[in-house]
Simulated scan of single mutants.
Amino acid sequence: MESSSALTLSQLPYVYPTIPSTNKNYPFWPASKRRSSQLSTRLQCNKMFVPGFGEATPEAKAAKNLHNFFTYTAVKIVASQLESYNPEAYVELMEFVDKHPLDDGDKFCATMFRESSRHKNLALRIMEVRSAYCQKDFEWDNLKRLAFKMVTDSNTRLMRDYVSETSRSETEK
């Protein structure tokens, strides 16, 4: 893993001086406004603040996308299972998938519940598979490793392309 040159918030107390005990060195610091609690307070946050996500954190938005992706995955698994042992149910599921988008997993399942009693059983099966896949089969550590590698490789490629592009234009001048 590569190290970053950026400082985390937890490192700030070591970089910046703590609140002085006297006003000799810092005449701009009013003695009357100092409290003993300020002297022992340290920043405990070591996460990066991400502005602009409104009501949810980036992790919450990623979780919502994964939730919908797990529904998509469950539909694929159930369809594959049905294709071999219940072709009639497979055809019904595929017709339903053709008519209803899978971009919102909960809406998809809720609509399927209300379609018919046979569709209700399919929806229950999809929700069961979705939960089992998320809990037991999805490789969370592998996702983290792959996402990190993807970001690192992409950053390296973009920087390499930029440097080679700017190097060429400077030597041509």
Rank of each mutant, 00 (worst) to 15 (best):
Cys134Lys: 14
Arg42Val: 07
Lys76Arg: 10
Phe49Asn: 14
Ala79Ser: 14
Asp161Asn: 14
Glu83Cys: 05
Ala147Ser: 11
Met94Lys: 15
Ser117Gly: 02
Val151Met: 08
Glu139Met: 06
Gln81Ala: 10
Phe96Trp: 06
Ser80Tyr: 01
Glu128Asn: 07
Trp140Arg: 14
Ile126Val: 09
Asn155Gln: 10
Ala56Gly: 02
Thr41Leu: 13
Asn86Ala: 11
Ser169Trp: 01
Ala56Gln: 09
Ser117Asp: 13
Phe69Asn: 07
Val129Tyr: 01
Gln38Lys: 04
His100Ile: 15
Ala79His: 03
Phe138Asp: 04
Tyr162Pro: 00
Phe113Met: 14
Gln135Ser: 05
Ser80Leu: 05
Thr73Glu: 06
Tyr162Ile: 07
Arg160Val: 13
Asp141Trp: 00
Val78Ala: 09
Leu146Met: 08
Met48Cys: 09
Val97Thr: 12
Val97Ser: 03
Gly52Cys: 04
Asn86Tyr: 02
Val75Cys: 12
Ser40Trp: 03
Leu122Lys: 09
Val75Ala: 07
Pro101Glu: 15
Thr73Pro: 00
Lys64His: 05
Glu88Trp: 01
Phe96Gln: 11
Glu165Cys: 05
Lys64Ile: 01
Leu158Trp: 09
Tyr90Thr: 03
Val78Thr: 05
Leu158Tyr: 11
Glu88His: 03
Ile77Met: 07
Tyr72Asp: 08
Tyr133Glu: 15
Arg114Cys: 07
Leu143Met: 10
Glu128Ser: 08
Glu59Ala: 11
Leu124Met: 12
Phe53Ser: 08
Arg157Ile: 05
Arg118Ile: 04
Arg157Lys: 12
Phe70Arg: 08
Met150Gln: 12
Tyr162Lys: 08
Ser131Leu: 03
Pro87Ile: 11
Asn65Tyr: 01
Glu55Ala: 10
Leu146Val: 04
Ala60Asp: 14
Ala89His: 04
Gly105Phe: 00
Cys109Ser: 09
Glu115Lys: 14
Phe108Ser: 10
Asn142Val: 04
Phe49His: 15
Cys134Leu: 12
Tyr85Gln: 09
Met159Thr: 08
Arg42Leu: 02
Glu95Leu: 09
Asn68Arg: 03
Arg118Val: 06
Phe148Asn: 15
Val91Lys: 15
Phe148His: 13
Glu55Lys: 13
Val151Ala: 13
Lys47Val: 04
Asp153Tyr: 10
Glu88Met: 06
Met159Pro: 00
Thr73His: 01
Thr111Trp: 04
Asp137Glu: 12
Gln81Tyr: 00
Ala74Leu: 02
Glu92Arg: 15
Gly52Phe: 04
Leu146Gly: 03
Cys134His: 10
Leu39Ile: 09
Leu43Asn: 15
Asp98Gly: 13
Asn155Gly: 11
Arg42Ala: 07
Ala60Ser: 08
Gln81Met: 04
Val75Ile: 13
Lys47Trp: 01
Thr57Cys: 02
Glu139Gln: 13
Gly54Asn: 09
Asn65Arg: 12
Lys136Ala: 07
Thr156Gln: 11
Thr111Val: 06
Ser154Gln: 11
Ala110Phe: 05
Glu55Thr: 07
Ser116Thr: 06
Ala132Ser: 11
Ala62Thr: 05
His100Phe: 09
Met150Pro: 01
Ala110Val: 01
Thr73Trp: 00
